[in-house]
Design a protein around this nucleic acid. Structure first.
Lengths: 305, 305
DNA sequence: AGGAGCTATAAATAGTTTTTATAGCTCCCA
DNA sequence: TGGGAGCTATAAAAACTATTTATAGCTCCT
């Protein structure tokens, strides 16, 4: 018996399927199958009933899950106890985040990283292409960003993809519901100059339709907010960025369609960073991202791939 | 954190030294050092103070040991619970034992193997050379025996070595204390024909001293006992073999010296048996052997290596 | 019947642990 | 105070274990 086996087994039992658990653990599905099978062979009893729609625990599986939770609890307690007795400072992992995820998950992330056994996380805010550059240069260990060009070398791991919205004064943006891309032609826009993924997608879609956009450029979020709220401009951004203002009725938002414009939030990591550390980070980030979505603060949806 | 790390750490903490723990776990000393270091690095605090005479736990080490014991306890509980729900029969491991260890440890061993996660042990009794032959032929998975000749291929692992005693009627054997080998000349002996290690050692020592021995041969333990108790003969055997009779005063025993005659109890295993299974077996046998020694039933002493 | 959505299997790769061999330290004792 | 016994540390090679990738096969649903 092995903590990894228990952790994998528990994830599968709780997710209700190997595939789902594999996604949440950032591990391949056969890896889970292998470890669960080891457990089953060792103790001579099936733990999971496999169906074509997922799995269900057997009686023995339920018993093991119970014990496994207790064991994992004890392990956490041990780690917490040790965490309080550190002599050496916690290793620091520098993580870049873009504004939207920054608002949504950063505080929780930093708080969580201060305890426990993992590295302490030092945050830095920036836009996607800037963060990618810093990761490439080795000045950041990792970054959460909207996959800019030429980041294949940084083995991007998609966490989620999200749709972009037209956001602006209620009188300009108009009714609820989706908005066809073509309708952007009549609107005064403000777009981010370095907004690689989003900006590129938007301009390309406009070019394909022969549209010309009435746009000015602004990078800083505070500047953009002023332009939207006080100067009657609109922008194309993820819902989360101006979530508060939208809830307050200061701004309105409509999802773009035809084509829908969406971009993926990915985690990129320094090439040298060991795979185990990388996975640790993914596993720390994933639930935070997921929980912010559940809380409705980010209008993200699950990634297609 | 990892159960292996906890197990190793605990063994070292309890044994008071890496070297001693390595012996009891049947693992090399650097393997322990490596795993403990992993723990220490991960949690940023030393767990053990290293001295030239062994180790002592630090404060953090003591805390971890406490937690580790609890965790290991939970793990055992989980294994026991699963063990009761087996659907598939436990795999069977066939183990040969010679008479002395057979008497001392076999019952406990078989009882222990019926529970838990390890294989079920099927015992077979025999003398060393016979057992070695069966292991070589693949008819036994492993055997506890007194290293006979030509067993190098079976990677013998020494568990203990023991001194041989002259045992016989009190009036012949005489006073307490050691007995010089030369004094055997005057005694009527009964030795085991196939008693490879012991018999060979004895005959060689006699040859070197130009002694001739008054001996007859008998293999079966019951026959030997009759010859000693009722027919006034003596034998050269490990103390454990006639422990009951000696305690009862029917027979007397004196350790041979000058030269002392001793032989090693080793575990031999089928060459194909995976290393992990082999170590599992060693780890199951070792404490049983040790506890029988502590109980005084076997007059063995620790091996020199 | 066909397709979506699972799990199983196999082969190659990557990663970790163990061993073997040796160096270096500390204490004890003559 | 030097020598030796008994530890732990370190490094390189070998053995082992886990993960991925790619694909096959199954079951349910329409």
């Amino acid at each position: 018996m092995d903590l990894r086996q228990l952790r994998y087994f528990l994830a599968v039992a709780e997710a209700g399927s190997f595939t789902a658990a594999a996604k949440s653990l950032h591990v391949s599905q056969p890896a889970l199958g292998y470890q669960v099978k080891q457990l089953e062979e060792r103790y001579g009893t099936p733990l999971l009933e496999r169906h074509s729609r997922g799995i269900r625990t057997t009686k023995a599986g339920a018993v093991l899950a119970e014990h496994a939770r207790k064991i994992m609890g004890e392990v956490e307690a041990a780690e917490a106890a040790l965490g309080k007795m550190r002599k050496t400072p916690q290793p620091v992992l520098s993580l870049g985040v873009t504004p939207t995820p920054g608002r949504a998950i950063a505080p929780e992330l930093v708080a969580a990283s201060a305890l426990g056994a993992g590295p302490k996380i030092a945050l830095r805010e920036g836009l996607s292409d800037e963060l990618a550059r810093l990761v490439l240069a080795g000045e950041l260990d990792a970054a959460l960003c909207y996959d800019p060009q030429g980041v294949e070398r940084l083995s991007p791991v998609p966490l989620y993809s999200e749709d972009l919205y037209l956001v602006g004064p209620p009188n300009l943006v108009g009714a609820q519901g989706d908005l066809a891309f073509a309708d952007l032609a009549r609107l005064p826009l403000v777009l981010d100059g370095s907004f690689q993924a989003g900006r590129r997608l938007i301009e390309q879609a406009a070019r394909e339709r022969g549209m010309s956009l009435d746009l000015i450029e602004a990078e800083a979020v505070t500047v953009k907010r002023e332009l939207l709220v006080r100067h009657g401009r609109c922008s194309i951004v993820p819902l989360g960025l101006f979530y508060e203002e939208i809830r307050a009725g200061q701004l309105a938002a409509r999802r773009l369609t035809d084509p829908a414009v969406s971009r993926s939030l990915v985690l990129i990591t320094r090439a040298q960073l060991p795979a185990a550390r990388r996975r640790e980070l993914e596993n720390a980030l994933q639930p935070l991202v997921t929980s912010r979505i559940a809380a409705g603060e980010l209008a993200w949806r699950h990634p297609s791939p």
